[in-house]
Design a protein around this nucleic acid. Structure first.
Length: 425
RNA sequence: GUGGACGUAGCUCAGCGGUAGAGCUCUCGGUUGUGGUCCGAGCGGUCGUGGGUUCGAAUCCCAUCGUCCACCCCA
């Protein structure tokens, strides 16, 4: 049976068996971010379309061709969020958080939407975990943000991750930087790919991360041009970020060609890359100019986001031992009508005693019930038949070795507790 | 948005013009109230969908939807 419908392209059903990875990530994410002093924020899944086009940048692929934009019944143009930073920044301003003690540190976890052609690790609806820090401009803050991200990945148990880092200077220095870049690239215009030529006019920085073969040599050189033309302050800032990272024991690679796809970045930009696949698990950077663009008070900010599905792929690839989902301590089995009624009470009693209790009240044969117990990896079974109903007792069966004992009803939950304890040793 | 591969049972796949198959899963059974192993039986598919070619199509053709891969881009 296929049914009449299939899920929309690029979306996925995440079934119970898969959930252990999600819990592992969500739990660790929450723990690490909370410990680092970040507060959680939940913000709308859709926003005014203009919020994204302003902050992410009209020329970016995200805005130009990947947004899920629709008009609501009130004729407002809304867009399913393609990323988190714009929404969090908007919330910061709208809720007057600039009047709170700075820095304000926020984290989020939730779905994002981009109309893109699906591929490995790329979906139309996908989850990101992200963090933003507002109101402080100091190299050590940039370094700390990166360190927190690395800490999270470490806690997950992932290895072989590389931090790539670069600086694209501040807004003041940007004109000079772009001019130097344009001059350099124009001089080599004939060797550039068509796409790079287009970017040269619209967004010269993006030429740097071109993957076109013919662009490689020039882009490599252009990375050097970028570094050479950073303003003195920007260079100092960047150097300090790197020094702090050294002090924090965070390993990184300089990648002069790293520029990120969103317009709002300034100064530090970075990505976390899975060294075995070359795929970016997450990335971020500083975006001191964004707040003003959104009509808020001039507020410096740093942030990052990581892709949850990609992180899960990585966990699987590296065979990280992720804790299993909830296991069943004790499985209650009943035979006959009277026993079924008794089972209801026993299940309730064991549940209230704090055990995780399994049962298959809809099945009648003991064979079928034991099979279910086995599949649920239950550790003990409590068997109730007519005999036990009359004797006011129950049989406790150890499902790993098959040993059984009969206990009186009133000492049942105590006996279950004792048995479980024994098995742990 | 471009190029390529592929859509057959819940899952993994075979069949590639002549009445739908395997393995795994699942359900039941292997005598009286005992699972995981083993053995047996059974359930389960209008072969993604819609057209077309043909006496006849899962098999050929077209379209469409979806999946995967590369590019583009990104998380």
């Amino acid at each position: 049976m296929k049914g009449k419908f299939q899920k929309p392209r690029g979306t996925q059903d995440i079934l119970p068996l898969e959930q252990k990875y999600w819990f592992w990530i969500e739990d660790n994410f929450r723990a690490v971010m909370t410990a680092a002093g970040f507060g959680r924020i939940i913000f709308p899944t859709f926003e005014d379309t203009a919020l994204f086009s302003r902050s992410v940048g009209e020329e970016t692929d995200i805005v130009a061709k990947e947004m899920y934009t629709f008009a609501d019944r009130g004729k407002n143009s809304l867009t399913l969020r393609p990323e988190g930073t714009a929404g969090v920044a908007r919330a910061y301003i709208e809720n007057g958080m600039h009047k709170e003690p700075q820095p304000v540190k926020l984290y989020y976890f939730g779905p994002m939407f981009r109309y893109d052609r699906p591929q490995a690790g790329r979906y139309r609806e996908f989850y990101q975990g992200g963090a933003e820090l507002f109101g402080e401009e100091d190299p050590i803050v940039d370094a700390q943000m990166i360190a927190v991200m690395i800490k999270f990945y470490k806690k997950l148990g992932l290895k072989n991750l590389v931090v790539q880092i670069n600086s694209i200077g501040d807004a003041k220095g940007r004109p000079k930087l772009e001019k130097a870049l344009v001059d350099f690239l124009s001089a080599h215009r004939r060797q550039l790919s068509a796409e790079s030529k287009r970017r040269l006019a619209k967004n010269p920085l993006r030429v740097l991360d071109s993957k076109e073969k013919e662009d490689q040599a020039i882009a490599d050189e252009a990375g050097g041009v970028l570094l050479d033309n950073l303003s003195k302050e920007s260079k100092t800032y960047f150097t300090k970020v790197l020094e702090y990272l050294d002090d924090m024991g965070v390993k990184y690679e300089l990648n002069p060609r790293l520029v990120r796809g969103l317009d709002y970045y300034t100064h530090t930009v970075f990505e976390i890359i899975d060294a075995s696949t070359g795929l970016a698990l997450g990335g971020g950077g500083r975006y001191d100019g964004l707040m003003k663009i959104l009509g808020g008070p001039d507020t410096p900010a740093v942030g990052w986001a990581l892709g949850v599905e990609r992180t899960i792929d990585c966990l699987k690839k590296q065979k990280v031992d992720v804790p299993e989902g909830p296991s069943v301590d004790v499985f209650v089995i009943q035979l006959g009508d009277e026993a079924k009624k008794k089972a209801i009470r026993v299940i309730d009693e064991l549940d209230e005693a704090g055990y995780s209790v399994g049962h298959a009240l809809g099945r009648d044969s003991i064979k079928a019930q034991l099979r279910v117990a086995d599949r649920n990896q239950a550790r003990l079974a409590v068997i109730l038949g007519e005999r036990e109903v009359h004797d006011k007792s129950a049989i406790i069966r150890d499902l790993s070795d098959g040993s059984q004992e009969s206990v009186a009803d009133k000492s049942l939950s105590a006996a279950v507790g004792r048995k479980l304890k024994e098995k742990k040793k």
